[in-house]
Design a protein around this nucleic acid. Structure first.
Lengths: 148, 148
DNA sequence: AATAGCATTTAGGTAAACCTAAGAAACGAT
DNA sequence: ATCGTTTCTTAGGTTTACCTAAATGCTATT
């Protein structure tokens, strides 16, 4: 099985590959805030596990398997980000937390987060009453329907 | 600083202490699904860090500091559990995930989760319209306000 | 009061993910 | 084409949380 940290590497490679089609050790080192030596080791491991194509001193590319994995992770993360933002969490905190949560959430939990995001997105009004009320509640601590 | 796993130990000790006022190595070993030897080591560490009172071959108790920490963790966990359950996640999954999330969530995120739980709880109707709609949406995949 | 049986600790090990320092390879500018 | 710089790998080390096996201490029963 793939440890939580390894998943971060896959996603980073995925991101970097979007542009050029591959990733370099240095780039990963910076993106993940880890020394190049460490990246080198981890790539070796990911290669053994069949997630990346990687020959020493060359570029990294995701394999099919790696791409599938990375996309599924990316989707998870995006759901969590959208969800947290819908809840009023600031963009960068949402991103940080999503990054931690994506490794950890049970599929059932994820399903409900996804449902919630879709629910909000698919609601008839741009800003449904209850969501407005919720934001109000966050500010004032009071539910606007309850007077007193 | 206190690693994520150490926090689990604190909470376990806290739980066990609710009844008898202390915890034993065996109990912790079972509750955390870890060998007694490992518990012994971790208690040593928690003791050095001032979270527990612990002399070898005796009971463990939380210090003031330990109690404060444990209570704060417990509160976090409870918010997450309530939150996930409100979202329609089943009890045991909610508990599992809460246990993982409590170590990880940014205070801002936690604040919003707390807000959300309070919002739902303080809403005027027992089952506000939108929540009903959400549950409906989870089942059918359709927002009941939108026909078609 | 001796001991059997259980709880706990000690000692020595493993695995993951990180590090530093030093050497090797590739790259690019002249 | 060579030299200097940058990038990458290797080798060896650290930390954290876990493990097993063996030793030790505690307690309760006889």
């Amino acid at each position: 099985m793939l440890g939580g940290r390894a998943e971060d590497y896959l996603e980073a490679i995925y991101t970097l590959s979007r542009e050029k089609g591959f990733a370099k050790v240095m780039e990963l080192s910076e993106m993940l805030d880890v020394k190049p030596a460490t990246v080198s080791e981890m790539l070796e491991k990911l290669s053994r596990m069949g997630y990346v194509d990687y020959k020493k001193r060359s570029h990294v590319r995701l394999t099919e398997k790696g791409i599938r994995k990375a996309m599924s992770l990316r989707e998870k993360r995006n759901i969590v980000i959208k969800f947290l933002k819908a809840l009023g969490v600031s963009e960068d905190v949402a991103e940080r937390d999503a990054c931690a949560l994506e490794h950890v959430l049970h599929p059932e939990t994820l399903r409900q987060l996804r449902n919630f995001v879709r629910f909000v997105e698919s609601s008839p009004a741009i800003n449904p009453r209850w969501l407005e009320h919720f934001r109000e509640f966050c500010k004032t601590g009071k539910h606007p329907c309850k007077q007193r």
